[in-house]
Amino acid sequence: MTTLALVGSPLWYGSRAGGTLALLLLTATVVLGIASGGRASPRRIGRFEIGLLHRNLSLLTLMFIAVHVVTAVLDPFVHLSWAVSVVPFGASYRPLWLGLGTAAFDLLLAVLVTSALRHRLGVRRWKAVHWLAYAAWPIALFHSVGTGTDTRLPLQLWLYAACLASVVGAVWWRLAKAGPERVVGRWVATVAATAVPVVLAVFLAAGPLQPGWAQRAATTTILLGGGR
Rank of each mutant, 00 (worst) to 15 (best):
S85M: 07
R44V: 04
T151K: 09
A201E: 06
R174G: 01
R118Y: 09
L62V: 02
L153E: 15
L100A: 14
W12H: 05
T147P: 04
P42E: 08
A205W: 15
R228E: 05
T190C: 09
V198A: 09
G122A: 09
A206I: 09
A206C: 12
V171M: 12
S92V: 01
S9C: 10
D106S: 09
A189F: 09
V69H: 05
R182D: 06
P180V: 14
V123H: 03
V123K: 03
R182G: 12
L209P: 02
L6P: 01
L25S: 02
H143W: 14
L80I: 00
T27C: 14
G33D: 15
G179F: 04
H130P: 00
L21C: 00
A22Y: 01
F89Q: 07
P95D: 04
I50G: 13
C163D: 06
G212P: 04
R120A: 07
V84P: 05
T61G: 05
I139Q: 06
G227E: 01
Q215W: 07
S115W: 03
S58K: 04
V196P: 13
A189Y: 11
L117M: 15
T219F: 08
L60D: 12
V7F: 13
L112P: 00
A35E: 13
W82F: 02
G207T: 14
V87D: 07
A40L: 10
A140L: 06
T20V: 10
L96P: 05
S85R: 00
V70L: 13
M1W: 03
G225S: 00
P154W: 06
T149Y: 04
P76E: 04
R55V: 04
V84D: 14
L204Q: 08
S41A: 15
V145M: 06
T3M: 00
A66T: 13
G207E: 13
A133I: 08
L52C: 02
R182E: 01
L74C: 05
A162G: 06
S166W: 00
G212N: 12
A40D: 02
I50S: 05
L53W: 09
V183Y: 08
T147L: 11
T2N: 01
E49V: 15
V196H: 13
L6D: 14
T29M: 06
P42N: 03
Y93S: 04
G212L: 07
G185N: 09
G38W: 08
A17V: 14
K177V: 01
L132I: 08
